[in-house]
Design a protein around this nucleic acid. Structure first.
Lengths: 210, 210
DNA sequence: CGACTATTTGAAGGGACTCAAGGCGTGTGG
DNA sequence: CCACACGCCTTGAGTCCCTTCAAATAGTCG
């Protein structure tokens, strides 16, 4: 089924479906496989000892998660929306390591993409003001979503966005409403989004400092 | 100077000094080398388009940063304190990739450590309450610092901590004072720290929920 | 000794969280 | 097919924590 030169990009692999909320893998579990998102969004979840739950990253179509950097999974992953994903064998990952050149570069670029996903969250939350955080998040995430004719599929629950942006669901709701009233975005459906004024969204993302 | 089996752990490598504030490498620069911290603390810095500056990670003795996952450095790094570090060649990194077994595991564990550093920031900032963020940060960072007889070297500027924890310097100062007044920590000098009540520090890190 | 930066402390104001209640959508069972 | 239950979204009001602004002190380097 798999070929060495297709470790990360075997289009013939069969995509598996998952319903929103379904668990994909659990922290501590053996790292026998890693995932590639084909459609929908997955979320990385971290539980602190006190029982607090945080969404630490979102993974969009084309992105990888659960890469076998260690023997056990380093975080838990769930379907944030209905999902299509491919489960790749970690064995092929290791064999691809032995190769050099293009195959090696693809592996590293996948690792960097995963690392970047976690790094981004810090950059978003680090901004002053909940609206700036929301704007920065949208600006960065929307290009990764599947879109058609300007309408972007954005199948995230506000509860997940709130946990990800370290705010409360009410604030997320109010911020989205404000962006709509400012004619910066439009939401024809709950899971559809249109960016009407990308420039002003970028200004908001920079924070309220001026 | 370097040997293949010592790609990441060549103790004979000569440690270079750097003064606090000195730039180690810059985002976008070619990835010809990566760094290992021997003494002191380094910081990863990210500049947004609006000129905002964020400290996105700290790197403590024994940790690696600037790993050559891509051709160009993915973030900037500076000395957060006076520093001793080793500059490793990225060429040796690539050669170590070809090996299997223990050498390969060490490489992956270095990558995971770097990724974890960025992930941790999100987990800290994600907590409710500035005191909880500070407590969680201390609890996680202090074991990585060099210590002797219970006194921990903690050479971080409060301004850096504030940027890292997405708060203002005044709040960092007030939180540290509060921790001192609660007899949870002591600071015999500005860059020295003693944990007097680790258990209560852990309670605070869980947040003010109950 | 003097300039600069970091830390400390105080006061005031605002933004986000909490609490509470109602509306909406989806899926289930009768 | 309809009624109901459940969870998510929405909206409002009040409170508190953190930020901002301001000023004084401590520390560092020349």
């Amino acid at each position: 089924m798999y070929q060495a030169n297709g470790v990360l990009t075997d289009d013939r692999a069969i995509a598996m479906p998952a319903r929103a909320g379904e668990t994909l893998f659990i922290e501590g579990e053996a790292c026998t496989s890693f995932l590639e998102i084909r459609h929908g969004v997955a979320r990385a979840v971290d539980l602190t000892l006190g029982g607090e739950r945080q969404v630490t990253a979102f993974f969009f179509p084309g992105e990888f998660l659960g890469l076998p950097l260690s023997r056990k999974h380093r975080y838990s992953a769930e379907a944030a929306s209905d999902l299509l994903y491919v489960r790749h064998s970690s064995l092929n990952w290791r064999s691809g390591m032995a190769q050099s050149g293009e195959a090696e570069d693809r592996l590293f670029s996948a690792v960097w993409q995963e690392e970047r996903s976690f790094m981004d969250r810090g950059l978003f939350i680090g901004r002053v003001g909940a609206l700036a955080r929301m704007a920065a998040f949208l600006l960065s995430s929307l290009p990764k979503c599947t879109a058609s004719a300007g309408t972007i599929e954005f199948p995230l629950w506000q509860i997940d966005i709130a946990s990800y942006l370290a705010t409360c669901p009410e604030t997320v709701c109010r911020n989205l409403r404000q962006l709509r009233e400012m004619k910066i975005i439009a939401m024809p459906r709950k899971d559809r989004l249109i960016v009407q004024d990308r420039a002003r969204l970028a200004v908001l993302a920079e924070g309220t400092h001026e």
